[in-house]
Amino acid sequence: MTMRIGIISDTHRFTAAIDKAIPFLQDCDLIVHAGDNVDDGEYIEAMTDIPVVAVKGNCDFYSDPGNDEEIFTAEDKKIFVCHGHRYGIKYTLVDLYERALDLGANIVIFGHSHVPCYEEVKGVIFINPGSTSLPRGGSSKGLGILDIENGEINYERIKI
């Protein structure tokens, strides 16, 4: 069995950028929105008819309801989703790594920096798809696709 998860973050209400990402999300089983703006998750779900797990980011102080963190299991992998701003991710992944260990997470999905990241630290995989609308650090606009099949993890970042 395969689980395909689309990962998007830091859309900041730019629906034109989200619309460019939607064709790449159409064959996903689930979509994760890692914050800024959490309300964009509702738009994505309406446009794709695919369930969306979305968390609040630092620009979502006005949004209610919405959670700062989500945890779910996909194909026996425990996935922790947060925006990252509360863990100082622009400087280090140490605090986020500690939180992942506390939760027993295998995969951490986050945003905030607008810079793509895929890194494995002592068995924990960290994924930041970058920003769909406002990329930083010389990166391009994009999103991520995470495939989990028989315990194997495959990740691809897609430029839009």
Results as ranks from 00 to 15, higher is better:
52 V>N: 02
53 V>W: 00
54 A>E: 04
55 V>N: 02
56 K>Y: 05
56 K>A: 12
56 K>W: 02
57 G>N: 03
58 N>P: 06
58 N>S: 04
59 C>Q: 05
62 Y>W: 09
64 D>Q: 11
65 P>H: 13
69 E>K: 11
69 E>V: 11
69 E>H: 05
70 E>M: 09
71 I>K: 13
72 F>G: 09
73 T>V: 09
74 A>P: 01
74 A>C: 14
75 E>R: 07
75 E>H: 04
76 D>E: 14
78 K>C: 10
79 I>V: 15
81 V>E: 10
81 V>C: 11
83 H>Y: 09
85 H>L: 06
85 H>M: 08
88 G>F: 09
89 I>L: 07
90 K>C: 07
90 K>I: 06
90 K>Q: 15
90 K>V: 01
91 Y>I: 00
93 L>N: 10
94 V>W: 14
94 V>G: 13
97 Y>H: 10
98 E>L: 15
100 A>W: 05
102 D>C: 11
102 D>A: 14
102 D>Y: 10
102 D>I: 02
105 A>D: 00
105 A>P: 00
106 N>L: 01
108 V>A: 06
108 V>C: 11
110 F>T: 07
111 G>R: 01
111 G>E: 03
115 V>Y: 00
115 V>D: 05
116 P>E: 07
116 P>K: 03
118 Y>R: 14
118 Y>N: 06
120 E>M: 12
121 V>I: 15
121 V>W: 00
122 K>H: 12
122 K>E: 14
122 K>Y: 07
124 V>R: 02
124 V>N: 03
124 V>D: 05
125 I>C: 10
125 I>T: 15
129 P>T: 01
130 G>V: 02
131 S>T: 07
132 T>M: 12
133 S>V: 07
